[in-house]
Design a binder for these strands. Sequence first.
DNA 1: AAACACCGTTCACCACAGCGAAACAGTCGC
DNA 2: GCGACTGTTTCGCTGTGGTGAACGGTGTTT
Lengths: 167, 167
Amino acid sequence: MDVVLVRWPEEDARLRQLRASGAPRLLLLNGESAPPELSDCLEDWIRLPADDRDVRARVAILSSRAETDHPAPRVDDAGLLRHRGRWVALSPVEAALAVTLVDRFGAVVGRDTLARRAWPDGVPTRNALDVHVLRLRRRMAPLGLEIRTVRSRGYLMQASQPTADAQ
Amino acid sequence: MDVVLVRWPEEDARLRQLRASGAPRLLLLNGESAPPELSDCLEDWIRLPADDRDVRARVAILSSRAETDHPAPRVDDAGLLRHRGRWVALSPVEAALAVTLVDRFGAVVGRDTLARRAWPDGVPTRNALDVHVLRLRRRMAPLGLEIRTVRSRGYLMQASQPTADAQ
DNA sequence: AAACACCGTTCACCACAGCGAAACAGTCGC
DNA sequence: GCGACTGTTTCGCTGTGGTGAACGGTGTTT
C-alpha cells in the first residue's frame, strides 16, 4: 500500500484527513520542529534532512504494516467495497449492510441495527438478514474480509485471520 | 513500561532476546549502518548522532504503545472478551462472570459475588457456577487468560502462566 | 489412621433458540 | 429472455443454560 508523505507541522489539516482514512503516512519534520505525537502504528516520522535510505526504510515499514496490520476497508459512494487495493461490487442491500459493518469495523453490530439500515421500513422476514449476510460474506471473502457471528448479539466485520477461535 | 535501548547491529543477539520477550526496544544505529527491518510495532530505530528530543520522543511512543498493547483484558458492550488483539465471544452468563473477574483482574473474587452477578435472583443449582466457570476457562484459554481457584475463597483471573506450550 | 463431610472439577445429557445454508420463487433492468 | 437482485421456506447444525452424577482433593472428626 502507498505511504503518504506529509510535511509537518505545515500540512496538519491533511494529516488529520489521512488519519481518518487510515492511510499509512510518514511525517517529514522540518528543521527544529518538535517530534509529533503519533496516532497509531501506521504513522511514523523522520527529521529532515535525512538519508534517503532511512526515508525509504521507514516508508517500507509503514507499507508492510498497512498490508498486514489492521486494514480498515471502506465502501465508496458507488457501492464498491474496497480493501487493500482490491474491490468487489455490492448490491444495494449488501452495501447498506457493509456500510454499517465497516462503520464499526472490528466491533459487534446488532442484528436490529443492520436490519434497520438495510430496510428502514421494516424487515421483510426474520431470515432475510441472515441470507444477505451470507451473500455478503461470500462476496467479501476474496478481499480477505470476514463477518463473524456473535450469537444472539450480532455480527462483526474484521480482516480474515485464523485466530481467536479454537477448541 | 521501560524501553530498552539497543546498539545495532552490534547487539543483535540481545535484540533477538528482547523480541522474544516482547519488551519495547529502540535500536540505535551507528553511523552508516543500513536501517534494520523492524519486527513489530514495539520496535523502532533512530540513526546516531541524534537530537536528544528525538530519541526521547521515540522512546515515549514505544512506551505508550507497550502500555496500551498489553492491558488487562476487557469485556466490551457486546459480550466479547478482548485481550491482546484477539477476542472470543462469551455467552450472557459467561460475560457476567467475566465482567466481574476482569473488574478485579488479578485479585480474588468470591463465589457468592460471582453468583449474585450472574444470577441476581438466585443461583439455579449448587454447581451451576462451577460449570460456567469451567466453560469460561475453556473459552478464555486461547487468549492466554486463566482462572485460578483459591479454595474456599473464590476465583482469580490472570494471564496464563507459561506452560511449555506458547506461541 | 480411617471415616466423613465439604468443596470444587469434569463429564454426559437434554430442551431450546439462534443461525447457516440451500433451494426455490418473484421482480427488475438491460 | 437473461442475469442480477431480492424475498421466502425449509432443514439441520450448533451454542446455550440447566441438571445429575462421578471423581478427587482437603480438612475435620472419631
